[in-house]
């Protein structure tokens, strides 16, 4: 029968062993794979400013990006290719709440420069390699 000491060794040994593997894989991801898959070299000043606007207004409080955030408003990972620059800028610069089918967005009334920066951020996200996310709908199921 397992003794308390053996149980302690299992806990401490397992924790240290798997922590080391996790740290090793994280190091590889952070220093090599993620910068490559996200085209980190294409993060321009406009992308940085766009990201700052994204964070400052807590867009993730309603939308998701990279599938992360809230589920009240559309996924925006591929919004640049799905909706295009003009549509995005119209939404961001609107002075009245944008409300497709009645669900309201905060009216941010951004300047054209700010909207351009957010578009630059979306364009950069649009190009990321996300292992197949978001998935393409099944053509056989489409109406």
């Amino acid at each position: 029968m397992l003794s308390k000491k053996q149980a302690k060794v299992f806990f401490l040994g397992g924790t240290i062993f798997f922590s080391l593997i996790f740290l090793g894989l994280s190091y590889e991801s952070v220093t090599k794979s993620i910068p490559k898959k996200t085209h980190a070299d294409q993060i321009t000043d406009a992308v940085r400013r766009g990201r700052e606007i994204w964070d400052k207004n807590n867009c993730m409080g309603c939308h998701t990006i990279l599938g992360e955030g809230a589920y009240y408003a559309p996924e925006l990972t591929r919004v640049y290719s799905r909706k295009g620059e003009t549509y995005i800028k119209t939404v961001l610069m609107s002075k009245t709440p944008w409300a497709p089918r009645g669900r309201k967005m905060v009216a941010y009334g951004m300047t054209e420069e700010e909207a351009n920066d957010v578009v630059a951020f979306f364009k950069w996200v649009n190009e990321m390699d996300l292992n197949g996310f978001p998935p393409e709908p099944d053509k056989n199921l489409q109406p």
Partner: peptide, 16 residues
């Protein structure tokens, strides 16, 4: 600890 990996499927992270 390695289960953290389920958050790393589709966010610009490697396939492993």
């Amino acid at each position: 600890i390695l289960g953290t990996g389920h958050h790393y499927y589709y966010i610009g992270t490697p396939k492993y």
